[in-house]
Design a protein around this nucleic acid. Structure first.
Lengths: 234, 234
DNA sequence: CGAACTTTCTACACGCCGTTCAATTCGTAC
DNA sequence: GTACGAATTGAACGGCGTGTAGAAAGTTCG
């Protein structure tokens, strides 16, 4: 690795690092090339040597954040024995909410309007991370899947790449289970999104309890046994 | 009403109208005072006679949109006889999704990051519309509420104004039912938010069916009978 | 070593934005 | 008709993303 390559990697990392710092402080809108350059003692134009445009930088940040989120969710899931599928679902769900609370601006960047005028690209690593999250959720649903389902869906109802991926990993899983996976995703997402965007905190003092109750109900509705936990508030 | 008052009301309405048009075309970020003024053949500074700041205009727009959404949901609910509480829930849910699909940028404005640097005020008509939505949902839950619940919640867990409001309208409803209401809200919100922000459409070709299945399951989990409807796709 | 080339960076320009302010028009009321 | 106040203009300030020209510095090859 030449000196130039090393410097380039360091500068790229520093740009992303400062961008994340600015985002954490002032929200996704605070990610401005001029502010980053100011922090680095550079000019705004210099960043164009590392990212073709500001949207490219944002896309990279989204991919990094999304990957970090899925990493955390996966290891939290794997910390619960496979013999406790309900506990694995809860571990995943709690990790998602806690990550969102710890990185609210990151959550907004991934799931909301990232920055003014940003249009997410069709492909790219961000999409890869989303597929990974979907695969993880499908695994949780697969562990709970019993019946054949009503047969309302076909594989053609889903993204071809995702469908092929799931069929390779879970050969016996019908398309109905993928539909259920998306429903589970929505159910986990709803309360967290409302909370992060401030719609829940003004109405209740204990969003954690609401979310926990909902996730217990979700686990029960999957036919699993929710982990027995002490009644805790906060 | 004097001529000046009439002109003022007309101009205020025109500003909001153009702002909504710009938002529908280019997203919440496209709401710029300069663009509005350009469309009206005015100067940007002139708008400050009508709205103290751009955030004030945005707050007004949010309140208007939120009120329109709740209006639609309420009349869709009332179009279903009260003897069919499951049908009322479905009518509310479908209206929310369809309104969001018809006004995706409005949905983002209400439930997402509205515009760069915007901070929602604590009070204001937007908050009032949110309370109205919450009251509507509570009515749907109240129609399904049977048991006393586990008693996990107290009235102090919720916003005092909302709690007082609900206790006045539904004297026999315990706080547990309000917690359930928030969970129902989250469950209706999740899939719609994912769809509007483009996370669902890339994974499935039929978000409507997924959402419908989820709402049927929600109605069933409330102990209600979902309306029997033909199996339709789209 | 030194010349040729590439990458990185600055400086400046353009057009966009929200916001402020003095000056000016113009409807209204006395 | 004149005085008042609301509506509006036009210019300004600072900030933004994005280009472009040219200087500076690293890399490669003769």
């Amino acid at each position: 690795m030449t000196r130039r390559e090393r410097l380039r990697a360091e500068t790229t990392a520093e740009i992303k690092e400062i961008a994340l710092k600015l985002m954490a402080a002032g929200g996704p809108d605070a990610i401005s090339l001029r502010a980053i350059a100011r922090d680095m003692g550079m000019t705004a134009g210099a960043i164009y040597s590392y990212f073709a445009t500001r949207d490219d930088l944002v896309t990279t940040l989204i991919a990094d954040l999304y990957t970090a989120l899925v990493d955390e969710a996966e290891s939290a899931r794997d910390a619960v024995p496979a013999a406790d599928p309900g506990g694995r679902v809860l571990a995943w769900a709690q990790t998602v909410r806690e990550w969102a609370l710890a990185n609210p601006q990151g959550f907004r960047l991934i799931y909301g309007d990232p920055v003014p005028g940003y249009q997410p690209p069709e492909d790219g690593p961000a999409n890869e991370a989303e597929h990974r999250a979907c695969r993880g959720l499908t695994g949780l649903v697969a562990a709970a899947w019993t019946g054949p389902g009503p047969g309302s869906y076909t594989w053609s109802d889903f993204d071809p790449g995702l469908a092929a991926d799931i069929r390779a990993t879970f050969p016996d899983l019908p398309p109905d289970a993928v539909a259920l996976t998306l429903r589970v995703w929505g159910r986990m997402h709803g309360l967290v999104a409302l909370e992060i965007y401030g719609h829940l905190r003004t109405l209740t003092r204990d969003p954690a309890a609401i979310y926990r109750d909902e996730m217990i109900a979700l686990i029960t509705s999957l036919g699993l046994t929710p982990p027995a936990t002490p009644h805790q508030r906060g």
